[in-house]
Computed example of a mutant assay.
Amino acid sequence: MIDGLIGGKVYGKPAERTGQSGKVFVTAKVRAASGDGESLFVNVIAFDDTAKAALLGLDDGDSVALAGTLTPKVWTDKNGEARPALDMVAHCVLTAYHVQRKRTSVHGSRRGDSTMPDDDFDDRSV
C-alpha cells in the first residue's frame, strides 16, 4: 500500500453501504487528471465517520481532495484496453465546503474583504 494524496472530481454520487459484519462505510468514485492529459479513476472507500460524512455531502462533479492508502489496479475499458486505476481507503477528505467554513471561522466578518491575502489561510488543521 502507498500513502497518497489525490485531488479530482466526484464521479457519480457517493453511497453509504453496510458490510456483512454490520459496519457502515461509504464508497465513491473520483476522476483525477493524470500528467498525460488522461483521467484516472480512484475507487474510494471510507470507514472514518468524518470522512464518511464529508463524502456523503458531495455530488457528481464536486471537487474533492483525499488522503489515504492507495492500491494500484488495472481495469479493461469497452474497447478492451487495459487502463490504470487506484483503490483508496480514505482517512481524510477536504472539500470546498471545508475550506470556506475554515476561512469564515478564521477571518470572521472580514471574509469578504478583498484586501486580505489568501495566504493567511492555514489549512493544516482542517
Rank of each mutant, 00 (worst) to 15 (best):
S105Y: 12
V93S: 01
D119E: 11
D48I: 09
D36H: 00
G12K: 01
G4A: 15
L70C: 08
A32M: 11
G7T: 07
M116K: 09
A82L: 07
A28R: 02
V93F: 06
V24A: 08
M1S: 14
T115R: 12
A65W: 03
A33H: 11
E38I: 01
D113Y: 08
A67T: 10
R111E: 15
V126L: 08
A85S: 15
G8E: 00
D87M: 11
L66W: 02
I6C: 08
W75C: 09
G8T: 03
T27M: 05
A67W: 14
D119S: 04
F41T: 07
L70M: 14
L94E: 05
L94S: 03
G57R: 01
T95K: 01
W75D: 05
Q100S: 15
S105F: 13
H107A: 13
P117E: 00
T115H: 05
D122M: 09
S34G: 15
S63N: 13
G108N: 09
A65V: 11
N79M: 06
D36I: 03
R83I: 07
T104A: 14
K102G: 04
I2Y: 14
Y11M: 14
V30R: 02
L70K: 08
E38G: 12
S21F: 06
S125W: 00
G57W: 00
T95S: 05
A33G: 13
S125K: 01
K102R: 13
V89A: 11
H98S: 00
F25W: 09
F41I: 06
D123R: 08
A67F: 07
A82P: 01
D62W: 07
F121V: 09
P117T: 06
G12V: 03
R124C: 06
G12F: 00
T27A: 07
I2T: 14
A51Y: 05
N43R: 09
L94M: 12
F41W: 01
V126H: 00
G22N: 04
V89I: 14
V30G: 02
T71D: 09
A90Q: 03
G68A: 08
V99D: 03
M1N: 09
S125Q: 02
G35E: 12
G7M: 03
G80H: 06
T71Q: 10
V74L: 14
L55P: 05
L58T: 10
V42E: 04
D48M: 12
R31F: 01
S125H: 00
